[in-house]
Simulated scan of single mutants.
Amino acid sequence: MTSMEARLGDATRTVPLPSPWNVNAYLAEVAAHRGRSISLQPVPAEILAENGCRGKGLWVARKFDDIIVYDAEATERNADHIILHEIGHMLLGHGRDDTEPAAPLSPKLAALLPSLAAQQVLGRNEFGAECEQEAEVFADMTMVYATLPRARGRGFRLFGRGR
Rank of each mutant, 00 (worst) to 15 (best):
A74I: 07
D97P: 04
G88N: 09
S106G: 13
A45C: 07
H81L: 11
D98Q: 10
T99H: 11
L40F: 09
P42K: 12
L105Q: 02
I67D: 05
K108L: 14
P42D: 05
A49F: 06
A49G: 04
P104K: 13
E50Y: 03
R62F: 06
I68L: 13
H85A: 06
A45L: 14
D97T: 08
G52Y: 11
L105F: 09
H81D: 07
S39T: 15
N78G: 05
L48V: 02
R96N: 08
S39C: 04
G95T: 15
D98L: 15
H94V: 10
E76R: 05
I67G: 00
S39V: 15
G93Q: 01
H81Y: 12
G57M: 03
G52T: 07
Y70S: 06
L58P: 01
R54M: 13
I83Y: 00
I67N: 00
I68M: 01
D65G: 11
S39L: 07
A102L: 07
I82C: 12
R54N: 14
D98H: 05
H85F: 06
A103F: 10
I87C: 13
C53R: 03
H89C: 05
H85I: 11
K63V: 12
E100A: 14
A45V: 05
H89W: 11
A102W: 08
T75E: 10
F64S: 11
G88S: 12
S39R: 14
G52C: 04
A45T: 06
M90E: 03
N51G: 01
P104H: 04
S106Q: 05
P107S: 11
H85W: 09
H81K: 07
G93V: 05
P101G: 08
A72E: 13
A102V: 09
H94M: 12
P101A: 08
I83C: 02
F64D: 10
R96C: 12
E73P: 00
A72Q: 12
H81C: 05
D71M: 03
K63M: 15
E46V: 08
K56D: 13
L48P: 06
P104W: 02
H94F: 11
I67C: 09
L91A: 13
A74M: 06
I82G: 02
R62V: 04
K108W: 03
H89P: 03
N78L: 13
A74Q: 04
D98M: 10
E46T: 13
V60G: 04
L84R: 01
I83D: 02
A45I: 08
F64C: 02
N78M: 12
H85N: 10
A74S: 13
K56V: 00
L91E: 11
P44H: 10
A61R: 11
E100P: 02
L40K: 05
D66R: 07
E76D: 14
I83T: 06
E100C: 11
D80W: 06
P101S: 09
K63I: 07
D66Q: 10
